[in-house]
Design a binder for these strands. Sequence first.
DNA 1: TTAATATGCAACCTGGAGGTTGCCTGTCAT
DNA 2: ATGACAGGCAACCTCCAGGTTGCATATTAA
Lengths: 130, 130
Amino acid sequence: MRKDRRRGPAQAPAHAPAGTQSRTSGGGPGQALLFAALGDETRLKLIARLARGQPQSIVRLTRGSLLTRQAITKHLRVLKRAGLVRCVRAGRESRFELDPRPFKDMEEYLSLVARAWDEALARLKAFVEE
Amino acid sequence: MRKDRRRGPAQAPAHAPAGTQSRTSGGGPGQALLFAALGDETRLKLIARLARGQPQSIVRLTRGSLLTRQAITKHLRVLKRAGLVRCVRAGRESRFELDPRPFKDMEEYLSLVARAWDEALARLKAFVEE
DNA sequence: TTAATATGCAACCTGGAGGTTGCCTGTCAT
DNA sequence: ATGACAGGCAACCTCCAGGTTGCATATTAA
């Protein structure tokens, strides 16, 4: 019978009312992809490993991982599609290296959320006290 | 035939060699859960909405969302299990409010990764130049 | 007391994420 | 030229994240 569901004004905004979406840096839809890419243990370990500096080949990254080379490959692909990682072929092997920029974006995003919260809290407090 | 797979020293560390794991704040395994919780558009929107301050009830959060109340409920549950959100019952409705702490944790984690990268880069550069 | 509201719970469906295996193609070293 | 090594592709499998519907249960307002 579909009792629940939306009941607000017509639908969702759907046309982005200019300024509502608090997009960090053109991010918005992309942010979820970024966070999702980090939402996996294996991928986090890969990131940690790549953060140590030297660009690493796939087999290298596979070593000590319990998983198959192909599994690691897929994870790397996810990281690449999210832009967290770059890849350059060198002869027969393709080396992956980390791209620090999206990390700063995420940092900024998180900071914005936290700040919004703090401000809202302060606003509320002020409103109550006076 | 299983040609690939691990070949490194026995297995993965498996006993945490004390100091290798760069855990931000006891995080390590939990971090993935946190990021995963933010790795979904719907959840990000919920977070954005909750960051505006007032604790909101489920139906309230459902309004204007295209999705069903139960869907939203599940998302909220995910956010709660990740610790990004708290919930308190008030009469017949249960209000959700954001918990800023894990956000700062993630921020710190990201900052660590970025810093590690920068340092590694600097180290490499110094090594090359001199 | 009764109807409307706000949730909770459970069963069910579906697509895609995470893994694996097998096979094929470039590259490097002999 | 011929293996060994590093990767890419594709088919396939399993499981669970997202969603839905239906029904049951508190709480509130009349």
